[in-house]
Design a protein around this nucleic acid. Sequence first.
RNA 1: GCGGGGGUUGCCGAGAUUGGCCAAAGGCGCAGGACUUAAGAUCCUGUUUCAUAGGAAUACGGGGGUUCGAAUCCCCUCCCCCGCACCA
Length: 948
Amino acid sequence: MSIQEIEKRWQKRWFEERIFEAEPGDKEKFFITVPYPYLNGNLHVGHTRTFVIGDVLARYHRMIGYNVLFPMAFHVTGTPLVGLSELIRNRDERTIKVYNELHKIPKDILFDLNTPEKLVNYFKGESEIALSDMGCSIDWRRKFTTMDPPYKKFIRWQFGKLKSKGLIARGSHPVRWCPNCKNPVEDHDLLRGEGANIIDYTLIKFSLDGYILPCATLRPETVFGVTNLWVNPGVTYLIAKIGEEEWVIGERAFEKLSHTDKHPEKIGEIEGRELIGRYARNSMNEEEVIVLPATFVDPNEGSGIVMSVPAHAPYDYLALRDLKDGRGDYDLPKEISDLILKIEPIKLIDLPRYGNFPALTVIDELKVKDQMDPKAEKATKIVYKREFHDGILNEVTGRYEGYKVSEVKEIIAKEMLKEGKADIFHELSEPVTCRCGTECVVKLVEDQWFLTYSKKEWKDKVLDCLSSMKIIPAEYRKEFENKVDWLKDKACARRRGLGTRLPWDKDWLIESLADSTIYMAYYILSKYIHEGRIKEEELDDQFFDYVLLGIGEQKNDLHKEIRDEFEYWYPVDLRSSGKDLVPNHLLFFLFHHVAIFPRRYWPRAIAVNGFVSLEGEKMSKSKGPLFTMREAIDEYGADVTRFYILGNSEHIQDADWRSSRVKDAKRALERFYVLAEDIIQRSKGSRENQKDLSKQDRWILHRIQMRIKEVREAMENIQTRRALQNAFYLILNDIKWYRKRGENPKVLLDVLDLWVRLLTPFIPHICEEIWSRMNGGPQNFVSLARYPEVDEGKIDYSIEIEEDLLRDTIEDIREILAVTKIEPKKIVIYTVPEWKREIYETALKLKVKGALDMGSLMRTVIKDHANTRQISSFAKKMVRKVGLMGQDEVKILANSPVDEFETMKKVEDFISEEFGCKVSVFDAEFSKYDPKNKSDAAMPLRPAIYVG
RNA sequence: GCGGGGGUUGCCGAGAUUGGCCAAAGGCGCAGGACUUAAGAUCCUGUUUCAUAGGAAUACGGGGGUUCGAAUCCCCUCCCCCGCACCA
């Protein structure tokens, strides 16, 4: 029978026996969820990681005695599915190729997936099958999609709640926008400019003869040092009516502003050169500054007009110097030229070690020639950075004197904004081109609905929640806290896509991340809906209020039952997720929980895991490479896939799917299966009585206890790799050694019994198969068996130390043989003499008490010995040796006395076999044969060795 | 730029919170051996260098420091990965 057939068989039995369908009960509950997948493709091995981690945790908790709820649903809201169905309908070549070749959808089926609904249906089916085939112990009665009508009612209720709590507000916000497509653009919609940010410039208004000359700047604080304005004399500027004001701006700036709430109206034109020589008023200090020509002014950037701060801006300094030097063909009247010569930079920022005018200092350092020199750009960056971090405003800035630039910059901008002296101008940090080829702009979306995540009270509540939560791995706690701090208000409504309409404004659809924040609660309701016990019509706000919040009166017994079930399962005990969801979904998950639910229903823990790459390459749903869950199962089997992914990496590290390694994993599991079968067969034929435990028997039982301890500890920390290392490889190695030393088939069967249960959460199918063979048929499921617990009675460190003594001695002999290249004819082993043993043990006991030193050791030891010299020399060594040991080790050694001679005497034959020669063991004190006086070298746990 | 995570012996990857059980777990690869007609699988052994007695030297991105002792602590430095939003 193939692996896949075995797996199928057990999946079928699990399903038929409904063993993963969770109902409230007396047992303590454990509610674990992982994010539902977004259905715009087939599940791949990347998803597998998150799901399988979830499943392993679900199975583990089930086996340690919890009543576990592990549900699953599907996310479909938003624009991607709509877009995808359109592309398929239009037979878009690339899309067809991607979905046929990467997602492995047969073309005849694919061509038919031409509506979002059909896509949802298809992927929903495929995903459920894939997850079941992966052995996930999901309660499928609770599945749903986010476009199911009852779910939409739940979402509407949630948003009603948020609104009534004042957490939703209306406002406007800037987005990257394609004027041609008339849509916000996302990174994957772009030809270039993926990394572009929206930068908020301060637009400072200078007034000139009734016009406003706005200057865009990132350095509003330098407004106090303005000596003049720059315009490009060769450019035609527009005059735009904005509100009551008339602005002079570049053509491109006009267009940019037209996408904002400024709604500019063109009322005229003016040539740049007409502005030259005229005076504009700086409203911050009421100074009049002259307008001058400069060629570096780019009419496409900012407003097309630049304020000049030569002391702190290299371009300005250079342009001014160029003018003074008479460079540039501007034809300026003499009186203006004379004025220019009189313009002196105004220093407003003190910057140590950068002289009077930092701009000049850096210009000289970099040897920038003039305003057209490319190095001017670099100089600008240097000055900006240095002044931002270390600059302090001086008396020129009036009441801002003494503040650091970094701390006062925002404040100045805000104040100017408030006083109407400035505006905000959004600009992209780099050029952005849409896929359609159009240059993108920043659009201010108006009348948008926002979730007001920036509210301090809301954030505080989240931080409060976070502080009582378990975050795994612990390093991520800081990341979460930072992200809470960083989160701003978030637009929560969209025009396009699948989704739920805002209850109070039907023009808007609820954004698809916002509809996926507290859906874990819905799993409890969805069972009743799925079973047809409750109808969609019943799902009104009163219903949700009652079952989810306990508000109002119960309408009937069923509602009470649902409420009880909710109270039983909630809160979520663990949400396990990929690390990509930390700054969005997981954050919103917390925000919405604290907003909607009382404290006792706040989530208890979040675990974060890394991704899966493919042969070292990042996977991509849309570009490849991609390896689907289906393919993994068909090619390697579910257990192999699980085993590989869980064992490949820990926590937030990324796992790498390498087919050669996966094949190794497959071999390892086959080995396990064969070994288990062998153990079962042998135990049947064995007449050995299991009561007489040999040393080796006790050793393997002891070792298993150690492994159980490790595995349980690892699982508590969600360290699947560590758990598997112990539960699989290390136990395997122990068993190998045990068999080599002489096995008791009955004991081995007991070990197997523990071993199989230990591995069940990870590789459930193969374990069920072995389990059923051990128990003479499938009467019970190992999936429901008790997870092994540490049996303190079987822990015996002495045995372990004895076995290590043997192993270490063998190793030493090997080393000697390797160095001397002797073909051994005989090996003699001299175990430590009593008197050394005594000193050693005394040293251990003293160390436990924390009183180990030469004096105390000698005092304790010396009284009944004659040869003080020999004793003190050895005692000195022991003080050193034991002194360096850790407290844990010392305690174990002190409490686990070992009779070395007895121990070694018993393994004479074993060692003899190992080296193919005669082996004798003597007590060093009473050795009858010692040709090279080796016995003197015998030390505690390190016998002397003679090889001849 | 800001924030987070990393750089370990051929590769993957433990170890780092609590400095010494660390030449550094485990796996893979490679080499030798056993088994076998052979191959594969399996099992055993080895896998930095030097060493005719279980030892020593050199090693954990680079440099410096603390310490009797550092992969682990501190400082400086180089390099890599991820996120920075209205998108799932």
